[in-house]
């Protein structure tokens, strides 16, 4: 089972290492981790997706909450959350395949962000399973490089995690 946890932390040096260190030493597996500053420059928001049992995710939450730098923490409910992930994918292309690739990019609501004689780089911002589908579709054209940001997510509606 995958769980998404949204964490507000003090924007200090060393906070990320405290959090990631906790995951490794307690044997929790991180699927993805995304960090960025919030509208308040003193606060960063970390979105972590973990894969594990209910017991494990509860332990993750409790141990995270013990860190002094963690201000607020919330497990986001799967169906009441907007989540996005950004991916850049560089695929090799030739004169023959370019238009086919661009078709896929269009259908998937992705964008071409760089193009050369032999390559095409597309960006897609979507939910994680869409990213997987996009990769599958591009696979036959030979993917050269992929980079993903990790999932970021917010609860839907007026449900707000604040400091």
């Amino acid at each position: 089972m995958k769980y998404t946890i949204s964490i507000l932390v003090e924007n200090h040096a060393g906070v990320l290492s405290r959090i990631s260190g906790l995951f490794s030493r307690r044997g929790f597996n991180i699927d993805s981790l995304a960090v960025g500053v919030t509208d308040d420059p003193q606060i960063s928001r970390i979105t972590i997706v973990v894969n594990g049992s209910e017991y494990m995710v509860e332990q993750v939450e409790k141990q995270l909450n013990k860190l002094i730098d963690v201000i607020r923490l919330r497990r986001l409910k799967q169906n009441e959350t907007v989540s996005r992930e950004l991916m850049l994918v560089k695929v090799s292309c030739t004169v023959q395949t370019r238009s086919q690739i661009i078709d896929i990019v269009r259908v998937m609501d992705a964008k071409v962000c760089d193009i050369s004689k032999t390559t095409l780089t597309a960006e897609l911002c979507a939910e994680t399973d869409q990213l997987k589908l996009f990769c599958d579709l591009l696979e036959p054209y030979h993917i050269l490089e992929v980079v993903r940001t990790g999932t970021v997510a917010l609860a839907k509606g007026d449900d707000v995690v604040t400091a």
């Binding site: 017991y55 509860e58 332990q59 409790k62 141990q63 909450n65 013990k66």
Partner: peptide, 8 residues
């Protein structure tokens, strides 16, 4: 006093 001990 440590909530993390409950259920650990």
């Amino acid at each position: 006093i440590d909530p993390a001990e409950i259920g650990k």
